[in-house]
Amino acid sequence: MSVRKCKDRHNKSQTRWVCDCRWPNGERFRKVMANRNLAKQLDHRIIGAVVNGTWKDLRRELKHGIRSQQTVAAYCDHYLEVYAKVRTRSWKNTLTRLKHMKRILGRFQMGDVKALDVDRYIARRQKEGVKDATINRELTTLKHMFRQALRDEVLTSNPIAQVEKLKELREERPRVPRSYLDRICKHLPWPVKQIVLFIYETGCRPSEALALKRTYADLKRQTAVFNMRKAGDNALVALSSLAVEAIEQVPELPGCPYVFWNPKTQTRYERISETFDRARRKAGLPQVQMKDFRHEVGRVIAESGQPLHVAKTQLGHSSIRITEEFYATYSPEFAVSRARDVLESRDEPCGKSGRHMGGKESASEVSTEGDKTGSSKLLNFQEFKERERGGGRIRTAE
């Protein structure tokens, strides 16, 4: 029994791990695995089967794939119940992605799925008008599900490990000025109007605003604690005066701990996306989405000159890379205006010395000094030539 490393035949820079052994009858078994741990696990299974005398069943299983006869639809249900609902907070998003996988790939058996089938899945989703970013998230879930199948020993190898994601065309989210918010709020009922205003002022997620409790909101200090963050930890965020006003406009309901409550159900809202979509269409702003409020807060903080950690804390990101790459970005208009200010100010003197920004000399001063130096050198050279013609000697420093 041995586990060794080898290079991929088609890609020399990529390393593969091989489980290479011989069965008791002398037949050789060789299997390429995705990583070293999987190769060692398979090697231990073979050793245990040889010791227990069940190596013939294991050989038949590895050769014909008996354990991989489970369909994709059945394993999707198993993956949702055993992994997604237990270990992820956003398992409802995973449920939506699994529905599309079951619809297209559900009839396949886990051992029969190949990279070509995944490529056809991508092509079909593109024909349905789905964006590349959404397809990439579905591919991430599909790959993780197959890795989980490897751990569960449903598969002996991952056939879709080499499938590459699509290149996403990053779209610049539109700015949402306060005039747009006022037009949308005219078509929103109470207290959904206050919820949308609170989201616009704080940049929080809709689920965080709906789950906010009154005990976690300190209106005097203008702070709030969100304990339902996507990152999984509590976060202290700042509240503007308009956000505090939005909370004060919703009276406290006895027996309901939440800040924003539904008058019909006497409890918190589950979601307000449908109401917001109707309001934005009536206002003539179908391009504005609720997630644009978060981007607007990130841009405002970035353009004010604050550190990225300020935007990261306010928006509740687990990594500052997400804040820097997607949220705390400068608008093209802001970047152009700042560049124009810098270009205009370089010709204006700063201070009594008449020098420019950074204490550097102006171009005119440098050129003037250069002309003086150059003219002195030219005079010395002419004097040298005249003395040389007259037979005089000039002693030069070595």
Rank of each mutant, 00 (worst) to 15 (best):
E208P: 03
N35G: 01
E388C: 15
K291P: 02
K213R: 05
Q266H: 02
I247F: 06
G111H: 11
L181K: 01
S90I: 10
A302V: 03
E369Y: 15
R151E: 02
K220M: 10
I184G: 01
G298V: 02
E386D: 13
R395E: 07
H309W: 10
M1T: 05
A161M: 09
R278F: 05
D371V: 14
S179Y: 13
F108A: 02
S331P: 04
A302R: 03
N380C: 14
R346Q: 04
R268S: 05
S337E: 08
R137H: 08
N25H: 09
G316C: 02
Q287H: 13
A335C: 12
A283E: 03
D233H: 15
V250Y: 07
T267H: 12
G255T: 07
D341K: 15
M110C: 06
T223S: 09
R321N: 03
G26L: 05
V163W: 03
R170S: 09
K360P: 02
K131V: 12
F226T: 01
L219D: 04
K213Y: 02
V250G: 03
V196T: 02
V163M: 03
K282A: 11
Y83L: 09
S68Q: 07
E171P: 01
R16L: 07
N234G: 08
E252P: 01
G354V: 11
K12F: 13
V336I: 13
P159E: 06
C6V: 13
V225Y: 06
S90D: 00
P159T: 05
E208Q: 04
C76G: 05
Q382Y: 13
G129F: 14
A279M: 08
K264V: 10
G255F: 10
W91A: 00
T223C: 05
S13F: 09
N25P: 04
E303D: 06
S364F: 14
T141P: 08
K12L: 04
H317E: 00
K127E: 02
C6Y: 13
D112T: 12
R175Q: 11
Q69L: 14
D119E: 14
S367G: 10
T202E: 00
P177G: 06
C256W: 01
V50I: 14
L379H: 06
S207F: 04
D371A: 15
K31V: 07
E138Q: 11
V163N: 01
A328E: 00
H317P: 00
R175N: 08
S376W: 15
K56Y: 12
Y180D: 02
A328Q: 01
R221S: 09
P349Q: 12
P251C: 10
E61M: 12
Y79I: 08
C19H: 04
R173I: 07
R125V: 05
K213T: 09
L219I: 13
N136C: 03
D132E: 09
E252V: 12
A238L: 10
Y330F: 11
K360H: 11
E303F: 10
R97K: 13
E81N: 12
D347S: 12
G351D: 02
